[in-house]
Write a protein that binds this DNA or RNA. Structure first.
Length: 633
RNA sequence: GCCGAUGUAGCUCAAUAGGCAGAGCAUCCGCCUUGUAAGCGGACGGUUGUCGGUUCGAGUCCGACCGUCGGCUCCA
């Protein structure tokens, strides 16, 4: 999957970072850039700006080349993005890979022409005349004049209409650009692919053709990026899921539904066991609830009003409507409400690895990352209002601890505020948002505001991690809820003997087991750390006469709860090693005449290195220590 | 859902221009008894996603549907 690239990221406003770079950057990239900027010299900043100009200019040059092929084509917008640029077109026919080659070739010619980029400011009338046959540009012009927004929808102080012209092509644009096309390294860009994209991201508006390109300062950087893309492909969890026999999906089963194979199931079990233990240490209690519930539940919660498009059609059971659950919260609320609660009992923390089902459009399903049935590491915390700040702080720290345990070290946070469709008074929303924001500040995590991104019942903090390839993934979500307690009329008896309303926190730390597993697979490239690895040791006897010793060793390790297999096929040792290597098994223990005689083991690590010879006991102790430390090898 | 691409053996991929559907790996059966990333031989394996159309003849051309992939939108 591509790194997250969306124009909505561009519009998000940062709260904490002090410096804003001149180009729009996505998610994680910003953190890297912001950190670099903080400790770095100006030259980095200049480099970023140069890249911005190059990418933006390439977008224009691409548009020129495309319009030469399709003189009747309509152009939309063409911004730089974190690894390059794109431009959206409305063309008479679909673009082919051959078109891309042609366009790219023509772009290099234009670059070689050393054409100047000429900026000029134009009046609305002149702009409309200039773009009279470009309906998308006319719409942008109107917006700039009416709303003071620029071509990306960002509000600017004083609306100015400007154009940039290079060679035969003039585009509505705020700039900046390179001075002339000769400043663009012709061997450091490449057109990657075409894709459909709605005009202004609105599915009710025309579908345009987008061409993505990547662009860098020099050929070497381009090649590094192309290699990175190749690495992304190699680590694709769908590919590794098949190769390592971790999971599968199946058209006969239905889209977005996941089959966990024994290998994947094993990883999941270790993850779940670890998390369960930590939750118990953290004061959580585990509950179990059904997969369906009567319509009353979902009417009361507001799901049928605010979440219906993500829910499946009801089942008819004895004339009553039942819905498959898209969330676990109403069930946990019913447990809370099963009897009177005292303030002394609070906070109460109910945890459940609960499986939920949500309708997702067919086109968005993606391996483990986006599915229709998934299991959340869900929990709901019920507390007194005065306990709320402390509970949010605890959840935030707990979340960071859990994620660090899996080798994630970099985090980003989003504070999502009240959406259009929401329950509850606005003033209480503002209070809740402030509470979450205060917690983020206490935790000293840099965060962005995602305006309108909250759940319908309350604002939330979403945590994203960065994986080994620098990509961000959303995992944790922490949601403040003052609405469901009211809707379900939840109460507790306070010190004063009166009824009070509890607050509620919804939270999932790994998010869903499916997505988390997908992220883990890609983060580790399938080479799980020893504590998670489905198979930890492969014992490889060299010839049949070593099988007995191999089985004996395996039994010993198994008795210590290691996951071990013996490869006693009649293949050559080389073939057995290759197979184990391809399965990314952490330890390959080779047993031959020498080892049997010496009573030692020859240990090969999956990184190809050779460990010193150890006795079986020493090896066992070593592996156990690696498991304990959650290390890779 | 929308735009585009795509669908051949369990997997990865071939099949000149519409003319008998093939290879490697995997699996199974033998032989080999092996020293740190593939030993050798043989066998098995297909209604070319499904349905319909064009044609003397369709894996190949056309249409619909299903799935997958790249995006858009949306999201754990």
């Amino acid at each position: 999957m591509r790194a997250n690239i969306s124009t909505s990221d561009i519009r998000r406003k940062w709260v904490e970072p002090r410096e804003i770079t001149p180009r729009p950057m996505m998610g994680g990239e910003f953190f890297i850039a912001a950190r670099r900027l903080r400790m770095a010299k100006l030259s980095k900043k200049e480099k970023e700006e140069k890249l911005y100009r190059i990418r933006h200019s390439l977008a224009h040059i691409m548009a020129e080349a495309v319009l030469e092929i399709f003189p009747e084509g309509k152009i939309a917008i063409g911004p730089p993005i974190d690894t390059g640029f794109y431009y959206d077109f409305d063309l008479p026919r679909p673009l082919t890979p051959e078109d891309l080659e042609k366009i790219e070739k023509r772009m290099r010619q234009i670059i070689a022409g050393r054409h100047k980029f000429v900026r000029r400011e134009v009046t609305p009338e002149a702009a409309r005349e200039l773009f009279h046959d470009q309906p998308y540009k006319l719409e942008l012009i109107d917006d700039i004049i009416k709303h003071g927004t620029d071509e990306y929808g960002e509000v600017t102080d004083k609306p100015v209409l400007s154009t940039y012209r290079q060679d035969t092509f003039e585009d509505l644009c705020r700039g900046p650009h390179v001075e002339h096309t000769g400043q663009i390294p012709a061997d450091a860009f490449k057109l990657l692919n075409t894709a459909g994209a709605y005009w202004r991201g609105d599915e009710h508006r025309p579908m345009l053709q987008r061409i993505y390109g990547t662009a860098w300062l020099n050929k070497k950087e381009l090649q590094t990026h192309l290699k990175w893309l190749e690495e992304v492909k190699q680590r694709d969890h769908r590919r590794l899921g098949k190769e390592l026999d971790l999971f599968s999906t199946n058209p006969q089963l239905g889209g977005g539904l996941v089959l966990w194979h024994p290998n994947g199931g094993h990883v999941r079990k270790v993850v779940e066991d670890f998390c369960r233990e930590e939750h118990e240490k953290g004061g959580y209690e585990f509950v179990y609830t059904p997969h369906i519930g009567r319509a009353w539940l979902w009417e009361t919660s507001g799901h049928l009003d605010f979440y219906r498009e993500s829910m499946y059609s009801p089942l008819d059971i004895d004339g009553q409507e039942y819905y498959i659950k898209p969330m676990n919260c109403p069930f946990h609320i019913l447990i809370y409400k099963s009897r009177r609660r005292s303030y002394r009992e609070l906070p109460m923390r109910y945890a459940e690895w609960g499986t939920v089902y949500r309708y997702e459009r067919g086109g968005v399903l993606h391996g483990l990352m986006r599915v229709r049935g998934f299991t959340q590491d869900d929990a709901h915390i019920f507390c007194r209002p005065d306990q709320m700040p402390d509970e949010i702080d605890k959840v935030l720290q707990f979340s960071l601890f859990i994620l660090r345990s899996f080798g994630f070290e970099e985090f980003e946070a989003y504070l999502s505020t009240r959406p259009e469709k929401a329950v509850g008074e606005v003033s209480r929303w503002r209070d809740a948002e402030a509470a979450l924001e205060a917690s983020l500040r206490r935790a000293e995590i840099p965060y962005k505001i995602d305006a309108g991104g909250g759940a319908f019942y309350g604002p939330k903090i979403d945590l994203k991690i960065k994986d080994a390839l620098g990509r961000s993934w959303q995992l944790s979500t922490i949601q403040f809820d003052f609405n469901l307690p009211e809707r379900f009329d939840m109460t507790y008896i306070g010190e004063d003997g009166r009824e009070h309303r509890p607050y509620m926190i919804h939270r999932a730390l790994l998010g869903s087991m499916e997505r988390f597993f997908g992220v883990l697979i890609e983060h580790y490239g399938g080479a799980f750390p020893v504590w998670l690895a489905p198979l930890q040791v492969k014992v490889i006897p060299i010839a049949d006469r070593h099988n007995d010793a191999a089985w004996k060793l395996a039994d010993k390790l198994k008795a210590a709860r290691l996951r071990v297999e013996v490869d006693d096929r009649s293949d050559r040792m080389n073939a057995k090693i290759r197979d184990a290597q391809m399965q990314k098994i952490p330890y390959m223990v080779v047993l031959g005449d020498r080892e049997v005689e010496n009573g030692t083991l020859s240990i090969r690590l999956r990184d190809g290195s050779q460990k010193e010879e150890l006795t079986a006991d020493e090896f066992l102790a070593y592996v156990q220590s690696v498991i304990e430390s959650k290390a890779l090898l």
